[in-house]
Design a protein around this nucleic acid. Structure first.
Length: 265
DNA sequence: AAGATACTCAACCGCTTGGAA
DNA sequence: GTTCCAAGCGGTTGAGTATCT
């Protein structure tokens, strides 16, 4: 696309030629991926390490899917973006063969305008900036807290082991209503769930924090989860960016989320 | 036919992160 | 604890192409 830019700098810039692609591909096939400064120097390409890495990652690496984004892929992008915001690499990680650059471009050219009108209708349709997510989760004004009055000393003594009874109770929380841009009232579909201040052995007196589905997702996706959540069968665990679909999502949800911010009334 | 405008997307840029020294 | 550097990320740019007038 970009025309070759004449430059006095050390590295060549602009669009890659087929012969350059071939050189880079052969070099990486022979020497492996990574060490991009070495690739840059030893491949014979007069390209920067960044340029080599980008070209490989976005165009030359195996299993890259080129061409039209399918409806399924588009749907996934929209759903993921609603939850994650502009975290393109995370989104792309859930769409085999697509790169973050491609997803980003597709969003900016095809989807951003279409989805603009939907933003703001839900308090959770927030672009989760990576660095803001933690504070958003803990600072949200819409947060409610409840206290456990009693718990049975059997299965339900730990409400975070997937007790359907407890989950159902949370699902019954009333949904809020919001105004649309057209002025009409519509039901906010965001469900609310309970979290805990402790991972295990929740007991009477524990405080639960009522949060949204999106907050659960964003909490899990953050590097430092802020609270524990129960396993909620109705959530779509498949959208989470695990490396392998073989992960036991239930274990992940019940055991791995850690508490950082105690919730108080 | 030709110029203007809009759209697409590859490539670049600046910043952040994480590991090694 | 600090500095340095490689790698990765998201935002932006701008050439090429398509569409409109």
């Amino acid at each position: 696309m970009k025309k070759q830019v004449s430059t006095n700098e050390e590295f060549k810039r602009g669009a890659w030629k087929p012969e350059e692609d071939l050189i880079l591909k052969r070099y990486i096939e022979a020497n492996g991926e990574g060490k991009w400064t070495t690739v840059s120097k030893k491949s014979g390409l007069m390209r920067s390490a960044k340029s080599c890495r980008m070209r490989w990652k976005n165009h030359l690496r195996p299993n890259i899917k080129h061409g039209q984004i399918s409806e399924d892929e588009e749907d996934l992008i929209i759903r993921m973006h609603k939850l994650l915001g502009n975290r393109w690499s995370l989104i792309a990680g859930r769409i085999p063969g697509r790169t973050d650059n491609e997803v980003k471009n597709y969003w900016n050219t095809h989807l951003s305008k279409r989805n603009l009108n939907h933003q703001g209708q839900s308090m959770n349709s927030v672009n989760f900036n990576c660095k803001k997510r933690r504070s958003m989760v803990s600072d949200t004004n819409d947060t409610q807290t409840i206290s456990i009055v009693s718990t049975k000393q059997q299965d339900e003594s730990n409400i975070f082991n997937g007790s359907d009874e407890r989950v159902d109770a949370q699902l019954s929380n009333p949904s809020s209503t919001t105004s649309t841009s057209s002025g009409a009232e519509e039901v906010n579909a965001v469900q609310r769930y309970a979290t805990s201040t402790t991972p295990d052995n929740s007991a009477a007196g524990d405080t639960l924090k009522i949060i949204s589905e999106e907050e659960i997702y964003s909490c899990w996706l953050s590097d430092e989860p802020t609270f524990y959540v129960p396993f909620v069968p109705s959530l779509d665990y498949s959208i989470l960016p695990f490396d392998s679909l073989d992960n036991n999502y239930e274990d992940c949800w019940t055991n791995k989320l850690r508490l950082h911010d105690l919730v108080e009334d």
